[in-house]
């Protein structure tokens, strides 16, 4: 099982490269169980979105 620290790195990398199937599955399982990391993933998605919209 991935740790939250590993998950945070993979979530960031998922914005820069295609994850392997194993990595992707590891994230899915972790997200099912970990609300903190689900929030973290939303934060990362928000940051990307914000940069694209800067500043309206």
């Amino acid at each position: 099982m991935l740790t939250c620290k590993e998950v945070s790195k993979l979530v960031s990398q998922s914005l820069d490269r295609r994850l392997s199937l194993v990595e992707w599955a590891g994230l899915r399982i972790h997200f099912l169980l970990c609300e903190g990391c689900r929030h973290f993933r939303q934060h990362m998605a928000f940051i990307r979105r914000a940069c694209q919209r800067y500043p309206d």
Binding site: T3, C4, K5, H39, F40, Q42, F46, A50, P55, D56
Partner: peptide
């Protein structure tokens, strides 16, 4: 930010309605 076992020290919390902030000058 993490405990030695790799868990968050402080769990990331939900950001309320984040997209709304993009309209806010102070946010930027």
């Amino acid at each position: 930010l993490f405990q030695p076992d790799g868990h968050w020290n402080t769990w990331p919390q939900a950001w309320a309605d984040p997209l709304k902030n993009l309209e806010n000058k102070k946010f930027w």
